[in-house]
């Protein structure tokens, strides 16, 4: 309960709501980095996943890529990228995107690939063209996994963007690192709780998307990992 007390004290202090280090600015920065990275990661990962899933080629590469990405230590990657390319939004976003593409790609691939062979056969047999099979049958049936991939990527990005404050990026991670530096645990707690809240909101958004985008007939199967 100590934590909530500290958080409230920090959160209700009007000094923390102003200027470039104010809560609105930092929150917006965090959302901006994360949203942009997710968008770009999706723009890369979704088409690749749909293509490999639909044609069935490159599955092994996709799966290995996912395993490899999971093993990468994000802190090390972010520091290395910044060390080589300099501090800036570009290098950090590149790192965030690189870490987020594999889960999007692999889950999309797996989702499309694992659509029941009978269903695909029936779709083709009824005269659907390749793109019709993909858009009318495979994507709707694979929607739970596609969303799972996007969700995993979003979670990964929000977390890594927090860590990225270590290399002088903005966002909510700033409070954590600056507070730590100043031995101001109140700010550390404030930043951490805000990050947790943001993560919870992201999870909530994906829950809503699931209700919205996953057809009722396929909502039955909901494996998450």
């Amino acid at each position: 309960m100590n934590i909530l007390g500290l958080f409230w004290e920090w959160f209700s202090d009007s000094a923390n709501w102003q200027g470039t280090d104010g809560i609105p600015t930092r929150l917006l920065e965090h959302v901006w980095y994360s949203g942009l990275s997710l968008l770009i990661a999706a723009a890369i990962g979704l088409p690749l996943g749909l293509l490999t899933g639909h044609t069935g080629r490159g599955g092994f590469v996709a799966a290995s890529l996912a395993n490899f990405a999971r093993a990468l230590p994000t802190l090390g990657i972010v520091i290395l990228v910044v060390l080589i390319y300099g501090v800036g939004l570009g290098p950090v976003l590149t790192a965030l995107i690189a870490l987020a593409v594999p889960p999007v790609l692999v889950n999309t691939y797996e989702g499309i690939r694992n659509v029941d062979a009978d269903i695909k056969d029936a779709a083709r047999g009824m005269g659907m063209t390749g793109p019709e099979v993909l858009f009318k049958v495979e994507i709707p049936a694979a929607m739970p996994l596609i969303l799972l991939g996007l969700r995993t990527a979003a979670i990964q990005i929000v977390a890594t963007a927090t860590v990225a404050a270590y290399v002088s990026l903005g966002g909510l991670g700033r409070y954590i690192f600056d507070g730590f530096q100043r031995q101001d645990y109140k700010a550390v707690v404030g930043g951490s709780v805000l990050v947790v809240l943001l993560a919870v909101i992201v999870a909530g958004i994906f829950l809503a998307l699931r209700r919205l985008l996953v057809p009722a007939g396929v909502r039955q199967s909901g494996r998450v990992a």
Binding site: I3, I155, V158, A159, T162, V163, G173, I176, F180, V188, V189, G191, S192, V193, V195, V196, A199
Partner: peptide
């Protein structure tokens, strides 16, 4: 995010 959890 893990960093937030560690800090808390």
């Amino acid at each position: 995010p893990s960093l937030a959890l560690f800090m808390l």
